[in-house]
Amino acid sequence: MVPTAPHSAARRAVVVGTGAIAHSHVRALRALGERVEVVAAVDLDADRAAAFAAEWSVPRTAATLTEVLAGDEVDLVHVCTPPSSHVELSREALAAGASVVLEKPVALSLAETDRLLAAERASSGSVAVVSQHRFGSGVQRLRSIVEDGSLGRPLVTTCLTQWYRSDAYFQVPWRGSFAVEGGGTTMGHGIHQLDVLLAVLGPWEEVSAMAARGSRPTQTEEVSVATVRFGDGSLASVVNSAVSVRETTVMRFDLELATVELTHLYGYGDDDFRVTAAPGHEGEVETAWAREPRGVPSSHEAQFRAVLDALDAGDAPPVALATARDTLELVAAVYASAFTGEPVRRGQINASNPFWSAMDGTGAVWR
């Protein structure tokens, strides 16, 4: 059962999957001190679970989440496994009354995500989806500036996720197919920046996209390029790549009174932003950008702190599953447009649409 404990009581957390991202989760949880206690590590690979537990002083390991839930009171389940197992593990945790912290992507499809939403509604627990780039102070500040219109409305945005993955990257068994990973660089890499795009600009309306592959041993795309129209009429150009030797992550927001640029790779701080004022508006731009919050880098720790604060207050934790579904719908729309050659509008991918049940829908163009 999920306790109604005061802030001072440690919540009991389980980490499922002890690969690389699980270390980021435990590192972040340890930084939150006595607010949370990691009581078990779950992995089908007993040796890997044992090594993880020894490194982080986790008192118990198990091969299945079922085993842990049957024996212990659990408040939080951190799901750090490959995408194909996310939904079933999360549904199991929710059925036991625990809350879930779920890595991206949420699921392999919108259909699976909707199943998980139904399980959440039937549970006393909740799902928070890891979207750590929303929680850096720079993005928080930019979001508030766009919301209140202090620097005018957005006009055009550039969103570049240009990363490099070698052939060896795709040798991991669960990578490189729509059936097991859910997609390629759009789903696995660019989704983080797409999430920030929606956090800052609000709902998208229409997508036109293309995708390509050919230089890596993968069935999924290595590159996608999309144009996104938002509800306010502004446009965004989006590039996702796994073949860019000089890696970079760039987001540029051109507002009426300023350009705000964020350049980083896998995480950012305040110093990674550059703000340029329109002529004659230097003072108001300086005032707007000087507002709080400040000094918080994007990180799992920042989001997990917000999750615990929300649970302590009895509120839905950020980023809620329904919010993450909006981002996944945009990813699905990129695939649908790329593979059909037609623009896709928000809400168009419903249960009667083949891209609702699988990201490759009617089939990738290179099949």
Rank of each mutant, 00 (worst) to 15 (best):
V106T: 08
V106C: 00
V106G: 02
A107G: 08
L108G: 01
S109G: 05
S109V: 10
A111N: 09
A111F: 09
A111C: 04
E112W: 04
T113H: 01
D114S: 01
D114Y: 12
R115K: 14
L117W: 06
A118T: 13
A119Q: 06
E120G: 00
R121E: 10
S123G: 11
S124P: 10
S126Y: 00
S126Q: 15
V127N: 08
V127D: 02
A128T: 07
A128R: 01
V129D: 14
V129C: 13
S131K: 14
H133F: 15
H133V: 15
R134Y: 13
F135L: 04
G136T: 03
G136Q: 01
S137Q: 12
G138L: 03
V139F: 11
V139T: 11
V139M: 10
Q140H: 05
Q140T: 05
R141V: 10
L142P: 08
L142Q: 11
S144Y: 00
I145P: 01
V146F: 05
E147S: 12
E147Q: 13
E147L: 12
D148M: 00
D148S: 06
D148K: 00
G149Y: 10
G149S: 04
S150V: 14
L151K: 03
L151V: 04
G152L: 05
G152D: 11
G152F: 10
R153M: 14
R153P: 09
P154V: 06
V156H: 10
T157Y: 03
T157E: 05
T158I: 14
T158F: 15
T158Q: 15
L160F: 14
L160P: 06
T161N: 14
T161H: 13
Q162A: 15
W163I: 11
W163C: 04
S166Y: 01
D167E: 09
D167Q: 09
Y169Q: 08
Y169N: 08
Y169S: 07
F170K: 00
F170Y: 13
F170W: 14
Q171D: 14
V172Y: 12
V172I: 13
P173A: 06
R175E: 04
S177E: 06
S177W: 01
F178Q: 02
A179P: 06
V180C: 12
G182W: 10
G182I: 10
G182P: 01
G184C: 06
T185D: 07
M187R: 11
M187T: 11
G188R: 13
G188E: 13
G188D: 03
G188V: 11
G188P: 06
H189Y: 11
H189K: 03
H189L: 12
G190E: 05
G190F: 05
I191C: 07
H192F: 09
H192E: 07
L194N: 06
D195L: 07
V196E: 05
V196L: 12
L198H: 08
L198V: 14
L198R: 14
V200M: 12
V200Y: 04
V200T: 12
L201R: 09
P203G: 13
W204G: 05
W204E: 06
W204I: 00
E205S: 14
E206H: 08
E206N: 04
E206S: 13
V207N: 03
A212C: 03
A212Q: 07
R213N: 15
